[in-house]
């Protein structure tokens, strides 16, 4: 398979799978080789990679507020023993 012969849409689909590590090893190798010589694909992968890493950093935040935890615990106590 020659990457240059693929339609733009198909090539982008492959690039996305490459970025998400969801490509089979053989195609991954092919993409890696193409990437080394294609400025456009390298740039797209780099900018989307930064976007994904930036989003993933949100995983480090977010604990439910104490008030929400207490409200949930109270609701659960109130229905305890009432379920069929």
């Amino acid at each position: 398979m020659k990457l240059e012969r693929l339609s733009c849409r198909r090539r982008v689909a492959l690039l996305l799978d490459y970025l998400d590590r969801e490509l089979p090893a053989s195609e991954r190798k092919l993409l890696a080789r193409h990437r080394a010589s294609c400025r456009s694909c390298t740039g797209l992968l780099a900018s989307l990679g930064r976007t994904v890493r930036t989003l993933h950093a949100l995983k480090r935040v977010s604990k439910p507020p104490v008030s929400a935890c207490r409200a949930l615990a109270a609701e659960l106590r109130s229905i305890e023993g009432t379920l069929p």
């Binding site: 982008v12 456009s40 740039g43 797209l44 780099a46 900018s47 989307l48």
Partner: peptide, 8 residues
């Protein structure tokens, strides 16, 4: 779909 990523 496939723009110049280097510009971003």
């Amino acid at each position: 779909d496939h723009d110049d990523g280097a510009a971003h």
